[in-house]
Amino acid sequence: MVVLGIDAHKRSHTVVVVDDNGRKLGERTLGTTTADHLALLTWAEKFGSERLWAVEDCRHLSRRLERDLLGAAERIVRVPPKMMAQVRDSARSYGKSDPIDALAVARAALREPDLPTAHLDGPAREVRLLAGHRDDLVAERTRTVNRLRWHLHELDPGWEPAARSLWRPKNLSAITERLAGLDGLVARLARTHVDRCRDLTSQIRELDRELELLVTRLAPTLVALCGCATLTAAKIIGETAGVERFRSRHAFARHNGTAPVPVWSSNRHSFRLSRTGNRQLNAAIHRIAITQAHYHPQARELLQRRRAGGDTKAESIRVLKRRLSDVVYRALLADLDRISQPQQVADAAA
């Protein structure tokens, strides 16, 4: 078997072929269109029919390539960039280039047999795109509100609008009334920012309604968890990108950064908070943990028990997050089974 490591970029892909011992057999750089990918498949056939494609996990760069290869019934695994960098640093060669990176991707795929396999994008990508677009709109609205505040301060330093609520319709209407009798450039810019805040708020609310319908349909078990509202569930679904690609709850915990890191020697065993993993997914689980620490009886009991046993507040929250990672993993599996059952019945009927 040969492994074809791919270093993906916006305008080009570099491919390096290695055998099962990691020896380099060939190299090629080509474009990123579907025609280029078909030419790549033709070139790869000369190395044999038993092959595995290894792609650096940068899906915004490799999505079209993966789609074309999967359409041709090829096997693809995704190599995390950090793992590829570690292999490159341990090699005998120096420097960094596209062929060196592609070779490191291929050798990392040989070294790690349980890498996640690539599959065609599904509803999880739609949720991720919608949630990401909403985050962009919220950030833009925040910048607009900050500029509006400075203009209002310049017009009337003694007037201080309500904090953290300037985007609300009633507050924007009150500002519009105060700006009605003012002339000049600053007042005109302030009115422009008010209109922009209204427009952004309308778009954000429309996205909220769309996300609520989509997330409720895809993951009702996840949304039913205490502390997991629509936006948190959307972030979990989008960043997980298919729970079936994780072989166990432990692999999922390692991916989201809730798995503890051992930092001990000799007789004293201790662990610390992990700073690795998907930080967006970790933040979503952290929000659930903080909410359950206030409102969920079993979570409160766990935290009290850990604090009584000598854990600090941060250590007890870390333990709760690790437990919640398993709960989220089971909820995602339950939702996946619920969605797949009707499809299996339809396939059996056909």
Score class of each variant (00 low, 15 high):
Glu140Ser: 12
Asp135Pro: 06
Ala219Trp: 00
His153Cys: 08
Gly184Val: 03
Val145Arg: 06
Leu182Asn: 07
Leu129Ala: 11
Arg191His: 05
Glu212Arg: 12
Asp195Met: 09
Asp156Pro: 05
Leu130Cys: 10
Ile204Cys: 06
Arg128Lys: 15
His153Ser: 12
Glu160Trp: 04
Leu207Pro: 06
Leu189Ala: 13
Gly122Leu: 11
Asp136Trp: 09
Arg147Leu: 10
Ala162Ser: 12
Arg141Gly: 08
Thr192Arg: 15
Leu137Glu: 04
Asp121Ser: 11
Leu200Cys: 07
Pro169Met: 08
Ser173Ala: 15
Leu148Val: 02
Ile204Lys: 03
His193Ile: 00
Leu148Met: 11
Pro169Ile: 04
Ala118Asn: 03
Ala180Cys: 07
Asp183Arg: 15
Val138Phe: 03
Thr142Cys: 08
Arg209Gly: 13
His133Tyr: 09
Gly132His: 08
Asn146Arg: 07
Arg149Cys: 00
Leu172Tyr: 00
Trp159Ala: 13
His193Met: 12
Val138Ser: 06
Leu214Glu: 05
Asp136Tyr: 09
Leu218Gly: 01
Glu177His: 11
Ala162Val: 14
Val127Cys: 06
Leu155Asp: 03
Arg143Asp: 06
Leu189Trp: 10
Glu206Val: 08
Leu182His: 09
Ala190Ile: 01
Glu212Lys: 10
Leu179Val: 07
Glu154His: 11
Asn171Glu: 14
His151Arg: 08
Lys170Phe: 05
Pro123Tyr: 06
Asp156Cys: 10
Leu152Tyr: 02
Glu160Gln: 14
Arg209Asp: 13
Thr144Glu: 08
Ile204Ala: 06
Glu140Phe: 04
Val215Leu: 06
Arg205Phe: 00
Asp136Glu: 14
Leu148Asp: 00
Thr142Arg: 09
Asp136Phe: 10
Glu177Met: 10
Glu126Thr: 10
Val215His: 01
Ala163Ser: 12
Leu222Met: 07
Ala174Leu: 06
Pro220Asn: 10
His151Phe: 06
Asp208Tyr: 03
Leu222Arg: 02
Pro169Trp: 05
Glu212Gln: 11
Leu189Asp: 12
Ala219Ile: 01
Val215Arg: 02
Leu182Gln: 14
Gly132Val: 04
Trp167Thr: 11
Lys170Cys: 09
Leu148Thr: 01
Ala219Arg: 02
Ala131Phe: 03
Glu160Met: 08
Ile204Trp: 03
Asp121Tyr: 08
Arg191Pro: 03
Ala162Ile: 12
Arg149Lys: 11
Leu182Pro: 06
Gly181Ala: 13
Leu214Trp: 03
Arg149Ser: 05
Arg205Lys: 14
Ser173Phe: 05
